[in-house]
């Protein structure tokens, strides 16, 4: 498969990841993906072959997201209500929905670096090595970042006790 076709095949995964990074805003996610694709296509001839194509493309997207977050410390997205996508049906009072909503809020509150890491492996299913390459951090850093993200998620969703394990020390040998 040509590299351009491989990038095209990655696009649904990029869109899913970008949408989650942009807190569910699909248009903002697609803005990010468009930027990423334009850069990837333009830079393809100059690409260094030291990481997988997948990790390379995700890295472009992540860098673009970092720029965007720096630029817009308070993202001022204003759109006419008519242009909004309908929210998914939310039967009120269902515990399942409450848990999802809690997770959504908790994810939005994670520090950006933890959010990028967790969504990359948990949502996209990226391998630990690919994700570390995409985030440009060592594997051990990624694992401890993931541990922090999952622990924050656990404490923010009020499921710290009872049905889950107690926090445990990181007993590295």
């Amino acid at each position: 498969m040509r590299e351009l076709d491989q990038i095209a095949a990655l696009t649904p995964a990029l869109r899913r990841y970008a949408r989650a990074l942009m807190r569910g805003d699909r248009d903002a996610g697609d803005d990010l993906v468009q930027d990423c694709l334009e850069r990837a296509v333009a830079a393809l001839p100059h690409r260094r072959r030291d990481a997988s194509l997948t990790a390379w493309v995700f890295r472009i997207l992540i860098n673009r997201h970092r720029d965007l977050m720096r630029q817009a410390a308070r993202p001022g997205h204003l759109v006419p209500v008519e242009a909004l996508r309908p929210e998914p049906a939310q039967p009120p009072g269902q515990e399942h929905h409450m848990a999802l909503r809690e997770t959504e809020v908790a994810i939005a509150r994670l520090p950006e670096d933890q959010r990028r890491a967790l969504l990359l492996v948990a949502l996209d299913g990226a391998s630990i090595d690919d994700a570390a390459a995409a985030l440009d951090i060592p594997r051990g850093t990624l694992l401890s970042r993931l541990a922090r993200a999952r622990a924050s998620l656990r404490s923010m969703t009020g499921r710290a006790g009872g049905d889950t394990a107690a926090p445990r020390p990181n007993g590295r040998p």
Binding site: L4, I7, A8, A9, T11, P12, A13, R15, R16, R19, A20, G24, D30, V33, Q34, L37, E38, V41, A99, L100, T103, E104, I107, L118, L119, A122, L123, R150, L153, R154, R159, D163, T164, A165
Partner: peptide, 30 residues
């Protein structure tokens, strides 16, 4: 088990994108 539940919640919140329905501007970018 908790992590598996977290993964499932994330997958439900952000379901996969259709591979067939790319917006024009993304096709153009490709």
């Amino acid at each position: 088990a908790l992590w598996t539940r977290q993964d499932a919640a994330l997958a439900t919140l952000y379901p996969p994108e259709e591979a067939t329905a790319l917006p024009d501007r993304l096709n153009a970018a490709l």
